[in-house]
Design a protein around this nucleic acid. Structure first.
Length: 289
DNA sequence: TGCAGTGTTGCTTC
DNA sequence: CGAAGCAACACTGC
């Protein structure tokens, strides 16, 4: 569900709430969500008593640096929500900042619940159960994460680095932008928005892009992602932050889930097509093939 | 009613 | 090798 800006918002929120806290208990109703170590019991045993030193992000992965050289990795995939608050297990209820039908549902889909030493909790709610939690040794995790592409908002992700990673690949630009091994953190929403801003058609083959177009895509990556982080992510559907609050980027998205509407730049009708098994939205007039 | 679609990833198949 | 298809799972909307 969440891409880089949403995950960044969650990480910032968690850093404000749970830094220095110690895990005292873990509950699940769905042991399969824990992928590493293999048994949930082992996972629980190893995390209990560990203190949270720092929370950070690599691509769309949320990482809790723990005492004892361990790292807890959480990936929310399509429908995960990582939340902070207090729940009564008897009623499985949560008191989020906003109330509504989604919040009620989020409560029912809580499958992993960490209790902290101040009585607060961190919960992973996930309708489709694609999300995962893993416990790694710090050194092992470093190797695991090294297969990801560069962080697009890092200062050293400059135009040269962008060209270097992009021109190694072949295929359609939209698919490549979403490839986590090429650049980390971009998914369906932001690849659509980036390509609209750069005026590049999602079907364009990498090898046909000229320098001017590459430059525009590079610039759009930085600008769109930065803006989306500022606006705390996109909630066109069910994305929420750790307190249950919506983001604001949906108000200024240009193409994502806007098929049939007029392009704000040229007035043509936004089109939706199938690309690499996903839907892609773009303006057929200002993003010509 | 039934089936395509949904923000992800990784494995299998060709 | 790359590209495509699909599975993991559950719900919504046409």
């Amino acid at each position: 569900m969440p891409e880089l800006p949403e995950v960044e918002t969650i990480v910032r929120g968690l850093n404000e709430k749970v830094l220095g806290r110690t895990f005292i208990d873990i509950w699940t109703d769905s042991k399969k969500i824990v992928k590493k170590p293999e048994s949930f019991e082992q996972f629980k045993k190893e995390i209990k008593g560990k203190t949270i030193l720092k929370i950070w992000r690599r691509g769309k992965n949320i990482l809790f640096d723990l005492s004892g050289n361990k790292v807890l990795l959480i990936h929310q995939k399509l429908t995960g929500h990582l939340l902070h608050g207090t729940w009564s297990m008897k009623h499985r209820t949560w008191q989020p900042k906003e109330r509504g039908p989604l919040e009620e549902k989020i409560n029912t889909y809580i499958h992993l619940l960490f209790t902290l030493d101040n009585g607060k909790m961190v919960a992973l709610s996930d309708l489709r159960k694609f999300g995962k939690a893993e416990l790694w040794e710090t050194e092992e995790l470093k190797k695991e994460l090294s297969s990801l592409g560069p962080e697009p908002l890092d200062r050293d992700f400059d135009f040269e680095e962008f060209k270097r990673v992009l021109l190694k690949t072949r295929g359609k630009i939209k698919k490549i932008l979403m490839d986590q091994k090429v650049i980390a953190g971009i998914g369906n929403i932001y690849s659509d928005e980036i390509l609209w801003q750069a005026k590049v058609n999602p079907l364009r083959q990498i090898k046909t892009l000229n320098k001017k177009e590459l430059k525009k895509i590079y610039k759009a990556i930085k600008e769109v992602l930065k803006k989306a982080v500022e606006l705390r992510g996109t909630s066109t559907s069910d994305y929420r932050d750790i307190e249950g609050k919506k983001g604001f980027f949906q108000k200024q998205r240009k193409v994502y889930r806007r098929e049939g509407e007029k392009c704000s730049r040229c007035g043509a009708i936004i089109k939706k097509i199938k690309l690499a098994g996903r839907s892609a939205r773009f303006c057929p007039k200002c993003q010509k093939v």
